[in-house]
Structure formats: structure tokens, C-alpha cells
Design a binder for these strands. Structure first.
Length: 423
RNA sequence: GUGGAUGUAGCUCAGCUGGUGGCAGCACCUGGUUGUGACCCAGGAGGUCGUGGGUUCAAGUCCCAUCAUUCACCCCA
């Protein structure tokens, strides 16, 4: 085979698609229950939008975006930027003070693929715009937690606060001093990071670095009064709703726009890609995009990672069931079956038949594979008498059914079939 | 961008120190009952051994290159 999908791009085949649909349905149900409305945005946006929101100096913007440079447009690497653009463009912030929005769709990042990481991947995104209350943070996390729980996945919620422009600079200085004092002991990556993004050093997986950083100053102890109060209220709210969480003073974000509350849903079952979902507050972002000073918070869940977890968890024997298979033997019977199948489909039945003139044995096999509850066998002998055999594939019982002689009689047969099959 | 591993049937994989590609499993087709599925039995079809070079009398097997996949680093959902 010469033509293949691009590296990092995957087909989702029948058998797996059902799992995706299940997850998406669950998400829509639960998000709707929390008052969220779905919004869908285009995949292409002006490159500038992502540069301004995600941050010029981030890895995503620096080297991972699929950009048509001659046109200055980019395939979205995440959803928040597009969502906020749409939110401002259509004046949603004027229509309602608080908007709860979610979206599901593909994102694109040119990274080296590995387990749980693709170049085209899918995220579910939930965002609350216009609300500053810590209870909103609590509600959002509890929603994510409820969703994952309903899927039967056990993940842990980790929580941190990144402070705000008022308190973060001071902490940054203090952290830099700490890191500089241990510069020689850190790995090459961390030495580089200490210059570009010192917060990232806290997040290094190198065991030695982790050890070095154990006593590092905690952002949680350097928050300004407002941020500290907010963080405190978030924790109280989580406790009130019995949402389990643990504090992680080392958690940082890869996108520049986060402030205050940040959180991740973590699993230990996906190898290196531990985060199935992550998000946080971004109180300055809407303003940065040219809108009014409106606070916001949101999170994204990685669909591929959820699917992997679900697949690992249980053998997904999602067998499709069809109501009826019609097996016709011979030209006349097949022809009758053909129109009967069509009519039954109009009556909302899931009906199949073979169109290749195969033998009865083969047709029975097909019916079995399709998980048919009943098979209607129209043989030549029965057809002459205006009858057919209806076989219950589970109980193996068979009964004679009268076939429609005239078009007008058809409804009688349909009704009889419907009664038996649905009954 | 950097490392490691792996490319044999539609899928999962055997194939030893080079000697003609596997009665291998799943799936598929046909038959075992004139016209009855799952189970069983018999048979069948299916492959330029990723690609291109090299070594050799002889390469799926050894060497080099290349492409692809994958895991990890990095980064992130």
C-alpha cells in the first residue's frame, strides 16, 4: 500500500468509533446538566490569534503549529483561543454576564507522536467566561471529575495556584535565586529552562532535579491576599462537594495565559502522557485578545487518552444488534425481500439482507454476525403459499408469517412483524 | 529536534548458527443436510518477507542505506 495516513494522523475505524460516540454522548449529557452550551468553531484561524493567546515563547507557538505561512493562518493547536475569539466576535459577553460553553473537536500540533500523543488529536473543552467566584472553579473541576467518574475511570485531581500578575513576579525572583544556587546540580534541560521558563524546572522528571527542587519555595506560600483567599475558597468548595484532590506545588502550565487556579486530571496508566485533562483560570486573557477585562476558566480533556484508558480497562464488546435479517432464496423471494427491507426501515427497524445471491447457510451466518434478533426466511416453497418463516435467533423457535399478496396488505405483515420483533 | 526498539497474509505472530515462506491462530470463502447461524470437521483463497543496494553458490535471516511504525526524551490534553 503506497498511500497511507500521515504520521501522527489516525483513522478511527468501526468498532472504535462506537467508543468515541459513547464518550461524546456522556460529555454532552453531563456538560448540559451543568448548564453548558455547545459551540463549534472553525479549525483555521489567523496565526496571530494563537501567538497572542498561547504566548510567543511557548513550544506550541514556536515550533509545533501547522501554519500556512504565506496566508498567515494556522490550524488550531487548542480550542480556548478560537472559542474566546468567537465569544468576543459575536458579543456573547454582552448577551449574558456569565457564559458556560463547551466544544469537541480536532486539534493539531506538529510534535513527535507517541503513546497518547498524536499530531491530530481531539479535545473536549469546557470554559466559563465572566465569573470570578472560586465556586465556579469548584463547579468546573467537579464537573470534570463527575464525567471521568461516570466513564468508570479513576484519575486523580491535582491542584495548584499560579497567582496573578501582582504576586507571581516576586515569587519568580525568589525561585530564580533558588535555582541559580543549584545551577550546577541540575540537568542540561533545566539549566536551559532556568533562563527561559524557571517554573518549568519544578516540573522536571529527572530524579536528581526533583530531589534538588524538593525544598524549592512554593508558589502557594507566596500568593497575594486576593489569590490566597481565592485558592482557599476553591479548596473549601472541593471539600464541600467531596471532590478528592491533592495539592501539587510543582504543577505548572505550558501555556502562558494561566493565572490562579490550575489543575490536572492525572492517570498512571498511560506511560509518559499522564494528563488526561488539564486547565485553569485565565483572568487576563480576554483582555489580551482585545476584549474587556472578563475573567475566565476552562479545561480540556484529551479524547485519545480517554479512549486508550477505556480500551485498557475492559474488553469493549460493543456488538451491534440488528432487529431483523431477511433471507431470500431465489429471484422472486429476493426481490420481495428487497422492498420489504426498505419498508421496514421506514418503520424504524434495523434490517439487513444479502444482495449477493448467497446460499441460505451463508445468509444465516451473516445474520448471526450482525447480531440479528430474528431472521425472516423467504423460500421458494413458502413464497408460493404466500408465507415465510420467522426464526427467533435466540430461542431458535420458528413460526409462519403471512406475506403481503397485494401492496395494500403490506401494512398487515409489517404490523405483525413489528409486534413479534418488538414484543 | 535527540535516543532505543520493531517492519513476514486483512489482523496477531512463528521462522534457531544463512539452505525452497508457516497443516500457526483469528477473520474470509466452499463443502460436511435439496433450505437454517453460533460449536465441530474437511478443504480453499490470501505474501514482490517495508524499500533499495551489498556480501554469498544461496539472504526473511548477515552488512549498509532509506522509508515507515512505535516507545522514551522534550512538550503537552
Amino acid at each position: 500500500m503506497k498511500l497511507k495516513a500521515l504520521n501522527g494522523f489516525k483513522d478511527i475505524l468501526p468498532g472504535e468509533v462506537e467508543l468515541w460516540q459513547g464518550v461524546e454522548t456522556m460529555a454532552r449529557q453531563i456538560f448540559t446538566r451543568f448548564g453548558f452550551s455547545e459551540i463549534r468553531m472553525p479549525i483555521l484561524e489567523k496565526t496571530e490569534l494563537f501567538a497572542r493567546s498561547i504566548g510567543e515563547a511557548t513550544d506550541i507557538v514556536e515550533k509545533e503549529m501547522y501554519t500556512f505561512s504565506d496566508k498567515q493562518i494556522t490550524m488550531r493547536p487548542e480550542a480556548t483561543a478560537s472559542l474566546l475569539r468567537a465569544y468576543l466576535e459575536h458579543g456573547l459577553h454582552v448577551q449574558k454576564p456569565v457564559q458556560r460553553l463547551f466544544t469537541i473537536g480536532p486539534m493539531f500540533r506538529h510534535e513527535r507522536p507517541q503513546k497518547g500523543r498524536l499530531r491530530q488529536f481531539h479535545q473536549m473543552d469546557a470554559e466559563v467566561l465572566g465569573a470570578e467566584s472560586p465556586l465556579v472553579d469548584v463547579e468546573l473541576m467537579s464537573m470534570g471529575s463527575m464525567f471521568l467518574d461516570q466513564l468508570g475511570l479513576s484519575v486523580t485531581l491535582e491542584l495548584n495556584s499560579l497567582g496573578c500578575p501582582a504576586c507571581r513576579p516576586a515569587f519568580r525572583e525568589k525561585l530564580l535565586a533558588f535555582i541559580d544556587a543549584r545551577h550546577e546540580a541540575l540537568c542540561d534541560d533545566c539549566q536551559r529552562r532556568s533562563a527561559t521558563n524557571p517554573l518549568r524546572v519544578l516540573d522536571c522528571k529527572n530524579r536528581n532535579c526533583r530531589h534538588q527542587v524538593e525544598e524549592a519555595p512554593s508558589i502557594q506560600e507566596h500568593l497575594c491576599q486576593e489569590c490566597a483567599d481565592h485558592f482557599q475558597a476553591v479548596q473549601q468548595g472541593l471539600q464541600q462537594l467531596n471532590v478528592d484532590y491533592s495539592l501539587n506545588k510543582f504543577m505548572v502550565r505550558g501555556l502562558d495565559y494561566y493565572t490562579r487556579t490550575t489543575f490536572e486530571f492525572i492517570t498512571s496508566d498511560l506511560g509518559a502522557q499522564a494528563a488526561v485533562g488539564a486547565g485553569g483560570r485565565y483572568d487576563g486573557l480576554i483582555e489580551r485578545l482585545g476584549g474587556p477585562a472578563i475573567p475566565g476558566i476552562g479545561f480540556a480533556l484529551g479524547l485519545e487518552r480517554l479512549i486508550l484508558l477505556l480500551q485498557q480497562k475492559n474488553e469493549t464488546t460493543l456488538t451491534s444488534h440488528c432487529d431483523l435479517f431477511i433471507a431470500g432464496l431465489g429471484q422472486a423471494a429476493s426481490s420481495l425481500a428487497f422492498s420489504l427491507v426498505h419498508t421496514l426501515r421506514r418503520n424504524h427497524l434495523h434490517v439487513l439482507m444479502d444482495l449477493e445471491d448467497r446460499g441460505l447457510k451463508n445468509q444465516m451466518k451473516q445474520a448471526n454476525r450482525a447480531g440479528a434478533g430474528h431472521v425472516l426466511i423467504i423460500g421458494e416453497e413458502e413464497l408460493e403459499k404466500g408465507q415465510a418463516i420467522l426464526r427467533n435467533m435466540v430461542s431458535q423457535e420458528q413460526q409462519m408469517i403471512t406475506l403481503p399478496g397485494q401492496i395494500q396488505d403490506r401494512q398487515t405483515t409489517i404490523d405483525a412483524l413489528l409486534t413479534i420483533i418488538n414484543g
